[in-house]
Design a binder for these strands. Structure first.
Length: 264
DNA sequence: ACATTGACCTGAGAGC
DNA sequence: TGCTCTCAGGTCAATG
C-alpha cells in the first residue's frame, strides 16, 4: 500500500499521536526486519527518549528523538501504524511495538515483512546511502529539474516514474494514475516523450500527489474521474469510456485506458 | 551505467 | 467448507 501519499499520512498520524510522549519500553517482534541496528541497541536508544519531530523522504518515514536518533521505518507493501491503548485494538502483524509512559502504544504492523526498521544519527546520510532521488512533495521540483532527472533514460516511462533514484516516493498505483491523467501509455520510452507529454507528466505528478494527500490517501475518497477506483481489467474509463487494460511493465501490473493512452 | 528479472515474505481472495 | 492457485500499492541482487 504505502507510497508517498500514504507515508505522508502516516507521518501526520505519528505527529498527532506519538510525539512528545516518553517511551517506556520497545519490543522488536521481528528481528529480520531490522536494518543495521541491533534489537538491543534500538531498545536502549529509544527507552526513556521521546519523539520530537518527523521527516519523510520518498517512502521512508523518520522520527527523531530528543536524543537526536532517528527511527527509520519503511512500510514495504503492507505496513501501517496504529496508536492505541486497549490490547484489543492491537493489529495482527505487529513487528515493532513502542510503549509510552501514558499507557498508549505505537504499533508498526507489516504483514509481509517487506519493510524496514532502522536507527540512524543522520537522516540525510541515510537518504544518500539509499540513493534516493528527489522527493517531489518535500522538495521543489520545477519542469526543468523534472526533465533533467529523466535525461539519458531509455526505458519505459512507468519504470522511470517508479525508480526511487529518480523520483523518491512514487510506486505502482500512483505512477499509473499520473500516466492516466497525462494521457501517456505506460510503456512509452522516456526518450520518446514529447514536450507536451513531459509538461503534463510534471504537472500531473504534483497534482496527483497533492490531491492524494488531501484525501488522506484513502482510495474511497479519490475523485471518480481518477483511474484509482477502477483499476480492474475491463472497467470503463470514466473520462472517455474506453476499456481499462492490464499489462505487465517491469514486473508490475499496470492499468491504463486503451483508448486515450495510446502507445507511440 | 542502465534496464530487466527473479527472489524475498505472508495471507486474502478467487476458483474449483 | 476446504483446498489450491494467483496475486498484492515494496526493494534488492544478479543478470544482460
Amino acid at each position: 500500500m504505502p507510497e508517498l501519499p500514504d507515508v505522508e499520512v502516516f507521518r501526520k498520524y505519528l505527529n498527532s499521536t506519538a510525539l512528545h510522549q516518553k517511551i517506556d519500553k520497545v519490543e522488536v517482534k521481528e528481528k529480520s526486519m531490522l536494518g543495521k541496528v541491533s534489537s538491543r541497541s534500538l531498545q536502549m536508544r529509544l527507552k526513556g527518549a521521546q519523539f520530537e519531530s518527523t521527516l519523510r523522504h520518498g517512502k521512508y518515514l523518520f522520527a527523531q528523538t530528543d536524543q537526536k536518533d532517528w527511527l527509520v521505518l519503511h512500510f514495504g507493501m503492507t505496513g501501517f501504524l496504529r496508536y492505541f491503548k486497549n490490547p484489543d485494538e492491537q493489529p495482527g502483524h505487529v513487528r515493532l511495538l513502542i510503549h509510552f509512559k501514558n499507557e498508549y502504544k505505537l504499533a508498526f504492523d507489516c504483514r509481509r515483512k517487506l519493510g524496514l526498521i532502522d536507527l540512524t544519527e543522520d537522516a540525510d546520510q541515510f537518504i544518500m546511502g539509499k540513493d534516493l532521488g528527489i522527493d517531489p512533495w518535500r522538495q521543489e521540483l520545477d519542469l526543468g529539474k523534472f526533465k533533467e532527472r529523466l535525461q539519458g533514460r531509455s526505458g519505459a516511462v512507468k519504470s522511470a516514474l517508479m525508480n526511487q533514484q529518480i523520483f523518491a516516493g512514487i510506486g505502482n498505483i500512483y505512477s499509473d494514475e499520473i500516466l492516466y491523467q497525462s494521457d501517456v501509455h505506460p510503456e512509452t520510452p522516456v526518450n520518446n516523450l514529447n514536450e507536451k507529454q513531459l509538461k503534463s507528466l510534471h504537472s500531473k505528478m504534483n497534482h496527483v500527489l497533492k490531491m492524494a494527500i488531501e484525501k488522506k490517501a484513502d482510495p474511497q475518497q479519490m475523485p471518480q474521474s481518477w483511474l484509482l477506483p477502477r483499476r480492474k481489467q475491463g472497467e470503463k474509463c470514466p473520462r472517455c469510456g474506453g476499456e481499462i487494460q492490464k499489462i505487465t511493465v517491469s514486473g508490475r501490473s499496470s492499468y491504463f485506458c486503451s483508448k486515450h493512452q495510446k502507445a507511440v
